[in-house]
């Protein structure tokens, strides 16, 4: 019996599946970091919230960040439809909203330094949690900027995976905020 069979091509896992799986594992791992921060927050302070957090800024940046997830979704859809102009438009909008979110957090920080400095327990938790989250927002914005730069040059006309990855990461950062916002402002 001759055994030198050629491997059937359909056996190989498609590259896109491998990439997606890796991305989701990354989210799983990152969730542990944020879960650890939440544990620290409730472990140290229970459900106590400092009354001087600015509810209006908190609500505003939350709405903007959630809205930016929608525009990110539209950007991904535009990339899949090979609509270059739409991709550029929606990416730009997402970037602007992300930047507004960061500006809001920065403004809140300046206020918070006086109200509850890092040397208080709530200040420690507030600055660490918003800081770690903002760091992820910044990296997300860097990815979105690179996407925008390349989208203009038409590099995603063939393969929209980078757009999908950047947008999924942006959604992930949003979902984290969905847990952090109530933990820091509401409960």
């Amino acid at each position: 019996m001759v055994a030198s069979t050629v491997l059937p091509a359909e056996h190989e896992t498609p590259r896109i599946t491998i990439n997606r799986f890796g991305l989701w594992l990354f989210f799983l791992s990152e969730s542990m970091l944020f879960a650890g921060l939440l544990v620290a927050r409730f472990g140290l302070l229970g459900t106590e919230v400092n009354e001087e957090v600015s509810q209006s800024i908190g609500l505003l940046v939350t709405v903007i960040l959630l809205a930016s997830s929608y525009s990110a979704l539209r950007a991904e859809q535009a990339a899949k439809a090979r609509d270059r102009a739409g991709l550029v438009r929606w990416l730009t909008l997402t970037l602007v909203m992300g930047a507004i979110f960061l500006a809001g957090v920065a403004y809140e920080w300046v206020e918070a330094f006086d109200a509850f400095p890092t040397s208080t327990t709530f200040g420690t938790l507030f600055f660490t949690m918003t800081g770690v989250h903002a760091f992820h927002v910044i990296t997300g914005l860097v990815f979105l900027l690179i996407l925008l730069f390349n989208a203009k040059a038409g590099r995603y006309d063939e393969d929209s995976w980078p757009v999908e990855a950047g947008v999924k990461y942006w959604h992930f950062v949003d979902v984290v905020w969905v847990f952090f916002y109530p933990a820091l402002y509401l409960i």
Binding site: S29, L37, P117, T118, T124, T128
Partner: peptide, 24 residues
């Protein structure tokens, strides 16, 4: 993949206590 994030967090907290005057 799952657990290493916690040691990273522990190290980050110590660094913040050391350098940013935090009080974890």
């Amino acid at each position: 993949l799952i657990f290493t994030q916690f040691v990273a967090l522990a190290m980050l907290m110590v660094i913040l206590d050391r350098t940013a005057g935090m009080v974890f």
